[in-house]
């Protein structure tokens, strides 16, 4: 059920990608996403595909595992494809009654679909290879300058990492409470919107109670371990760029340059 979603999960391995500094991966992912919108030609897609496949190979995350995560977004993709397919103007190539498919529509549907897949693949590859803690560490460090304008960067990143730690626990708990209420005859599936919303109360109230209890416990446990905010804290895994990180930056920038070049070339050629 809910637990089948692999997007956002961490996949333990010791690949070069896993060992990269999270800042490289964050900035790299950002550039990758931007790059997806800079071109509109077959060569562009090939370039991105080559880049992605290389990265996937380097990450040592099994393709099956990645593919499973993609299942969750199939609906979203179909939805997008549907709109592109039927609502893009252009030369009609196929028509039944008032439904018509245009050449542009087909092109858009296919390419937008591929772009979306690339986007999800690229960004989930980041979460597959980066522990949530590294991710928040990376974000904390990147956002550090914001500290000067009184943004509580450390607190935000601590909150994020705790949230990530507790999401699987709360999901499991949801499952358990749901079953317990079903054992008391609760019905979460039938009835209209109002009835269904009402039927969620026996699920949500215990869930909130439990979440607050956990938050309370956790706060106490953190204090007992001398947690007192970000000041004066040292890091077990401080972020320090290694040679491989500079190399990775170079690769990402090279990739980015190629895509931009392709984009410029396209405009001239076509």
């Amino acid at each position: 059920m809910i637990r089948d979603i692999t997007i956002g999960q961490y996949y333990p391995s010791d690949s070069i990608l896993h060992r990269l500094d999270p800042r490289v991966k964050l900035i790299g992912t950002f550039l990758f996403i931007v790059s997806l919108f800079l071109f509109d030609s077959l060569y562009g897609y090939i370039a991105v595909a080559v880049f992605l496949v290389t990265i996937i190979k380097l990450s040592k995350v099994p393709f099956r595992f990645i593919a499973k995560g993609m299942k969750a977004i199939v609906v979203l993709m179909l939805f997008m494809a549907f709109f592109n397919l039927f609502f893009t103007p252009g030369n009609t190539i196929f028509q039944i009654w008032i439904i018509k498919i245009t050449d542009n529509g087909l092109r858009q549907a296919i390419f937008m679909g591929i772009r979306l897949i690339f986007l999800i693949l690229g960004s989930s590859l980041m979460t597959f290879t980066t522990t949530p803690n590294q991710l928040t560490d990376g974000l904390e460090k990147i956002m550090k300058p914001l500290n000067r304008i009184k943004v509580p960067v450390h607190e935000i990143s601590m909150m994020m990492s705790i949230a990530l730690r507790f999401i699987p626990i709360l999901l499991e708990e949801t499952d358990k409470i749901m079953k317990a209420q079903m054992a008391r005859g609760a019905d979460f599936e039938s009835g209209g919107v109002l009835k269904r919303a009402k039927s969620l109360i026996p699920l949500l109230v215990p869930l909130f109670v439990s979440a607050f209890r956990r938050a309370n416990d956790l706060a106490m446990a953190m204090e007992a371990r001398c947690y007192r905010g970000g000041d004066g804290r040292t890091k077990m895994k401080p972020l320090r760029y290694q040679n491989r990180d500079y190399l990775a930056y170079t690769c990402v920038l090279a990739y980015f340059a190629i895509v931009i070049a392709l984009g410029i070339l396209e405009n001239r050629l076509f």
């Binding site: 358990k176 079953k179 317990a180 209420q181 054992a183 005859g185 109230v205 215990p206 109670v209």
Partner: peptide, 27 residues
């Protein structure tokens, strides 16, 4: 009838009595 582990975690109503009524009402 199935009573799960730590069943008190499923209590949700405002009073004890209302909570126990939940099951039969569903029937």
């Amino acid at each position: 009838g199935l009573v799960f582990q730590y069943p008190e975690h499923q209590l949700f109503e405002t009073t004890v009595f209302k909570d126990v009524v939940f099951g039969p009402t569903n029937l």
